[in-house]
Amino acid sequence: MSSPETSPAPIFPHRHLIGIEGLSPQDITALLDLADTYVEQNRRIDKKGAVLRGRTQINLFFEASTRTQSSFELAGKRLGADVMNMSVGTSSVKKGETLIDTAVTLNAMHPDMIVVRHQNSGAVELLSQKVSCSVVNAGDGAHEHPTQALLDALTIRRRKGKLQGLRVAICGDILHSRVARSNILLLHTMGARVRVIGPPTLMPTGIERFGVEIFHDMKKGLEDCDIVMMLRLQLERMAGSYVPSQREYFRYYGLDYDKLAAAKPDALVMHPGPMNRGVEIDSAVADDIHRSLIREQVEMGVAVRMAVLDALARNLPNDPSIAETAK
């Protein structure tokens, strides 16, 4: 595997990363391979690279997120980019500026990358049409969260050695989850078999046409699974609107050792965070170092985001002098 510094050749034939939809298995594999090299780099004492030296990255977060935003910030900085964080609280969006005006304003500052999270599905795509730099979707509404799916795939691939043929269960609030959508698309593209598990009220209409198997009984759904992906369920959705109560939800869909026993003995547990302990996942399972990949997912997150930023930057117009220094 070649390191990115010596191989700046384009590997990813897209200008933006808006979603997993539209990516080929080759695109995904290329990003995961590159991310593997960054895992190694991130474990060194000197973690700093220079492939994004001179580049400006703006993290534009319309929705609060500690984890994803800091992961992108760290990823950009470790690649040598200048990273600016903009969150809704301090931006003019609160003063009524439209998304497109914000995009045009930021674009005038000549960023090379904009990382966007927005509460509305499709907002990141809309923004990408109005700027001249690369755009990375850090989550848009209930649509997609592609870097989460990529980091999940990297985590699984490093532990199981492959994605093809694995049986993966995605459990919980599928309806509102962009993580579920991106993961279903990615795992499906890479040849894994995907099951979704949850109450009917938290299943999207037409989910059976996503190429997944649907289960409402968690134990049955977990049978023969290699990977158990839990999703966060927002607490306000558990007050009678989608499910009657937290305790009833935990009883039927909370992951504890009893339910996990239905999966393969070596099945591993994942969660995109932040977790509601005792609601969708039992603390003991979440913290079990033999079964839980939750902390590893966070580590892979930085590496995957470095790979995405690097891959997209390779397609940007380049200043030869910068490329030279980067070497």
Binding site: A142, H143, R178, P204, T205, G206, R209, F210
Partner: peptide, 15 residues
């Protein structure tokens, strides 16, 4: 419209 496409695009549907 509520259906497969609204689910794919992450948009709330009207049945």
């Amino acid at each position: 419209h509520e259906g497969e496409l609204s689910s794919r695009w992450g948009l709330t549907g009207i049945p």
